[in-house]
Amino acid sequence: MAPLEAPVEKWTGKIRELKLGSGGRKTITVGGGTTLPFVKFEGAQPHRPAIAIEVQDKEPTDWSEFLVSAWGDALKNPGAWAKKAAEFGADLLYIRLASAHPEASNTGAAQAKKSASEVLSAVDLPVIFVGPDVAEKDNEVLVAVSDVAKGQRVGLGNCVEKNYKTIAATCMADGHVAIAKTPIEINLAKQLNILLSDVGLSPDSILMDPTTGALGYGLEYTYSVMERLRLAALMGDGMTSMPMICTAGEESWRQKESKATLDVPQAWGDNQERSLIWENVTAISLLAAGADILVLRHPKTVVTVKAALDKSF
């Protein structure tokens, strides 16, 4: 029979390439795809999705015992934690300045600078810094971190509609990448990208966080919004074509399926096995939807997802 004609879509757009890391720091580039994720017959995905590991600047108090045992004492110190994350195979690090949260230790710019310096001197991987997700606090700590990391092209987030201008300004001043986070909605995502660009930030310095819903907790919303963003970008919309980052680890590990160890229904199965698969399944399905950077928590999930990516490319 005649060879099959591959049903190629003629996309006019492409995902923007985004580079993190500079000034002596390792660099990583994500994005650049001219096709849907892993669809090879119609285009290229020049950079494989990257795996970030989450590190916090204070010892987490509410983490699952399986995470705690995997990381051990490294959790007590961001520098040590960062080093261990590098050993576990992270392509980059995602540093949560959790201590700045008003309901945690409410630390400020000084502590943020200290934590950032510790991490930056501990590893040479590309780094993303995010604040406690309280708009005013984020501004305070991120502006401080930006100064410390000047010229090293780190990611700074999260920009939301309330505080995007400050983070955009500091990214412009110090050559960083802004993480634009919007609540699972395509138009809001696009709008924030436009607003950031209007302030003067280059569209090539924006990473979108479409807000991750974990498996069983809104995953399908994130999944579809990401597919739509990706499609819009391939159709030529330059304001939806920024690469996407998903906090799959954080979201899946905060659900009771991953946290609970007491009174667990029998049908949920083994606690550790289930928790790991929960993070893993969340991550893999978001990859299929177009994630360019996945932020994970458990080292074993990193291994599994990296193995999957190794086979995919």
Partner: peptide, 26 residues
């Protein structure tokens, strides 16, 4: 992992080699 990808993308019958509640539930 691969089961998750295939459930997301276009498989209509997924046959697993193993069974455990911790795999089935997710």
């Amino acid at each position: 992992a691969l089961a998750a990808e295939q459930i997301s993308k276009y498989s209509s019958v997924v046959v697993l080699e193993h069974f455990s509640p911790a795999l089935a539930y997710p």
